[in-house]
Structures are given as structure tokens and as C-alpha cells.
């Protein structure tokens, strides 16, 4: 693993060894895309329109169980797309959240597409901000804009893209609106054409900030290339066993550094 950033902006960023461990076969694909999102945001519909598969999606929070995979081609690149279980958060202890979290943290997908419900943006941003703490390569898909329009709700995608530092694509996946745009943005982020500068939590966390800073310094010293030390520090302070184990075994150090800019 080389840390030669400049030469290889277009190289896949995913962690092949960890992906294999997570059960993802990458032999016929160039890039891997993770699909995250709250339950009932039309995530499966987005998955279907990206891959052309047909899976039933009811108007129920939490219908998809487990992990579904599919593939698509765009601009002569082959993408594998992994539909993660719908979750509200990546911090809790449920199995679903662990599956989603582990995939994004250890698999280091080339792009993580986060699907949010335009009518419930505020609540959905919880997950978005958490994902952006873990990964630098993400595309936000603001879905159900048709429904939002019906309720007279409009989301300023440019302003949102600016404050989050990632591409934002408004879609109405049921009608196929915005899917081409989404594909293009996935491609651009995967190939390094678009360089994300993701938003990181800035506001002080009550009574915690000092502890985080102290721990953060130690972690960055031990693992200088780790992209998300602050997040690791928070997880350690919460007693997250999986992260503790991966720090102890040094496995966390195997995660690839971010390209293009230093943390």
C-alpha cells in the first residue's frame, strides 16, 4: 500500500482485503459503492433504479433485511453496489447498524451514497453527518423530491452541497428523475474527478470536547494516516468493543489514508 496520492487520484480507494473479509467479491468490478440511508426513504427504489433490479419496497420503515448487492456500468467503469440495511444512526448497538458501520469503516467503499427523504431532511441529516465522520467519499441523494414538492417543501441542493462538502443530487427515484445525474456523480467521486471536503462536526459536544482532543492527539500520533481519528476517539470514549479491538490489534492502522489532502 503506497501513500502516493498525487499519482493515483483515479485509483479505487476501497480496501480490497477488508471487502473480501466482509464477503464482497470484487473480481469483476472496478469500484464499490455503498448505499446507506434511513428506513423508508426509498433507498431500495434508488437501488433498483441504479441496478435495474426489482425488489418490493413497501411504505414501511425497515423493510429491507440484510444486505443486497447489485452492479451497474457507467462510462465504461463497472460498479458494484451494496445496499446496506436502513438505519437511523451508526452509533447504536443493533445488528443492522453494525453491518452498515463496519462496511463503511472497514470496507472503505469508493463512494457511499446516502439516500435521504427530502420531506424529513433534518432527521435524516443525523445519519449523513455520522457517515461523513467516517468516510470522505460520499454522494447525497435527496430522494422523494416529488413528495416534498407536494408538501411545498424545497431543498436547496447547492447550498446543501456547499455546507456538506459533497455532491448533492435531488431525485425522485420512483419516476426515475435524477438517476442519471446520480450515476454521474457517483462516477465522479469514485474516479477522483470530484474531491469531497466533507463536513465534520464542529459544534462542541457537552463535557466531552477536552477528552476527545486529548485522545485524538494520541491516536493521530500512533496512526498518522488514519482519516478519521476524531471519530475513533469518540467511539473509544463510548466503549465500542469493535473499535477497541481493531485499535488493539492494530487493524485500524491498515485503513487507507485519504487521498488528495491531509487530515
Amino acid at each position: 500500500m503506497t501513500i502516493d496520492n498525487q499519482n493515483c487520484a483515479t485509483c479505487p480507494a476501497h480496501n480490497l482485503a477488508n471487502l473480501v473479509k466482509l464477503g464482497i467479491d470484487m473480481s469483476n468490478f472496478d469500484y464499490v459503492v455503498a448505499l446507506a440511508g434511513n428506513p423508508n426513504t426509498g433507498k431500495s427504489t434508488v437501488f433498483n433504479s441504479l441496478t435495474g433490479l426489482k425488489q418490493h419496497t413497501g411504505n414501511w420503515p425497515g423493510k429491507t433485511v440484510g444486505r443486497t448487492e447489485g452492479g451497474f456500468q457507467y462510462a465504461e467503469k463497472r460498479f458494484k453496489i451494496v445496499d446496506l440495511p436502513g438505519t437511523y444512526s451508526l452509533l447504536s448497538t443493533s445488528d443492522d447498524e453494525e453491518v452498515a458501520r463496519d462496511f463503511i469503516l472497514f470496507g472503505q467503499p469508493d463512494v457511499t451514497v446516502i439516500v435521504v427523504d427530502a420531506t424529513r431532511l433534518e432527521r435524516n441529516l443525523n445519519l449523513v453527518l455520522q457517515v461523513l465522520e467516517i468516510t470522505d467519499r460520499a454522494v447525497l441523494c435527496v430522494n422523494l423530491i416529488d413528495e416534498a414538492a407536494r408538501h411545498k417543501i424545497y431543498v436547496d441542493d447547492r447550498a446543501l452541497s456547499k455546507s456538506l462538502g459533497i455532491p448533492v443530487v435531488p431525485t425522485a427515484a420512483r419516476q426515475g428523475i435524477g438517476i442519471q445525474e446520480l450515476l454521474r456523480n457517483i462516477h465522479d467521486v469514485a474516479t477522483g474527478k470530484y474531491i469531497c471536503k466533507p463536513h465534520r462536526l464542529s459544534s462542541e459536544i457537552k463535557n466531552v470536547s477536552n477528552a476527545v482532543d486529548e485522545l485524538n492527539k494520541k491516536i493521530s500520533k500512533a496512526f498518522p494516516h488514519l482519516p478519521n481519528t476524531r471519530w475513533i476517539a469518540l467511539r473509544l470514549l463510548e466503549g465500542d468493543q469493535k473499535v477497541i479491538d481493531s485499535v488493539r490489534s492494530g487493524e485500524i492502522g491498515n485503513l487507507k489514508p485519504v487521498e488528495n489532502f491531509d487530515e
Partner: peptide, 11 residues
């Protein structure tokens, strides 16, 4: 437990 986390997740 889970109940508390669920509520927090809902915001």
C-alpha cells in the same frame, strides 16, 4: 437500553 437509543435516533 435499546428504547432510549431508538428515541435518540428519532431525534
Amino acid at each position: 437500553g435499546q428504547q432510549r437509543r431508538r428515541l435518540l435516533d428519532f431525534g
